[in-house]
Design a binder for these strands. Structure first.
Lengths: 144, 144
DNA sequence: TATAAAATTGAACTTGACTTTCATTTTCAT
DNA sequence: ATGAAAATGAAAGTCAAGTTCAATTTTATA
């Protein structure tokens, strides 16, 4: 999806919520939409500072929360740290985490999704969402 | 496995590491071996206090780390809190977490394990361990 | 456009889990 | 028994997350 469309989508979402416009928030939204893959709130905050924005961490934090609420960002709990990635029209996926270099690699498997649903049903549990992280060694680190 | 055997196993582990014996540590080990399912370090600490033990949180924390190192306890990251469960000769399993009441329910599925290994291989990733948490509603909370 | 009410910001603070530090106490080999 | 080494636990330090509130910015209305 094109960034302008996402921007409009988010602005509409904010209007519906009765929120005012603000430059700091816009800069966070833009920076987030330009990220690839995962980013933590602190990482995004630092990206914004490096780009020369005058911004506080709270605004980054709050905007990421808004983006998540709007369905544009998706929060992933990695240990104690939350990472955010694009959600809108991106299908669910899971993650490999390299124990050596910390790389986070996405993957998705319809089979795993299906089996998880089966198991939840078997245990009379209603599955709402899930988190699967496979820890190990990425291709680069195996060579070393 | 019988508790006395686990105790011996742990004491041998400590001997090999050149650790001295200590009463506070023993009380933590005993309390942990008597738990069922998951417990956080603070929960275990409170159990010990309620039982009338004079103990500091650090000792509980350090002993759980030792137990994990020995392969008797297994650490599970649940959001920001680490829970510990019995590991020795207990097979790996995953968890449901109820979004309503917070209940943690164990399940295991050889199929899921197998497919995870397949996928890791497909992505040239060496799987060392994994964490799968399915969030949703437990049986009780569905009724409400 | 001017103004006042309402929303937003961001520095600082609070929280909660985890981890370390270090003076005191306990253990253990001699 | 005694002294070196290890263990303890109160207190302090981290780190990310979440909250507070005075100051600033935005917006609706005059």
């Amino acid at each position: 999806m094109i960034m302008n469309q996402l921007l409009k989508y988010f602005n509409d979402f904010c209007s519906r919520k009765g929120l005012n416009k603000s430059k700091p928030r816009d800069s966070v939204v833009n920076a987030f939409l330009q990220t690839e893959h995962h980013i933590s709130s602190y990482e995004l905050y630092n990206v914004l500072l490096k780009q020369g924005n005058k911004i506080g961490y709270s605004t980054v934090y709050r905007t990421l929360k808004l983006l998540t609420e709007a369905g544009i960002a998706r929060a992933i709990e990695l240990g104690c740290e939350t990472h955010f990635e694009h959600d809108y029209k991106h299908k669910h996926h899971d993650h490999f985490v390299c124990n050596q270099c910390g790389a986070i690699i996405e993957f998705s498997s319809p089979t795993i999704e299906r089996i998880q649903d089966q198991i939840a049903r078997k245990f009379n549990f209603v599955s709402e969402h899930h988190s699967l992280i496979i820890y190990g060694l990425c291709q680069q680190c195996q060579k070393k």
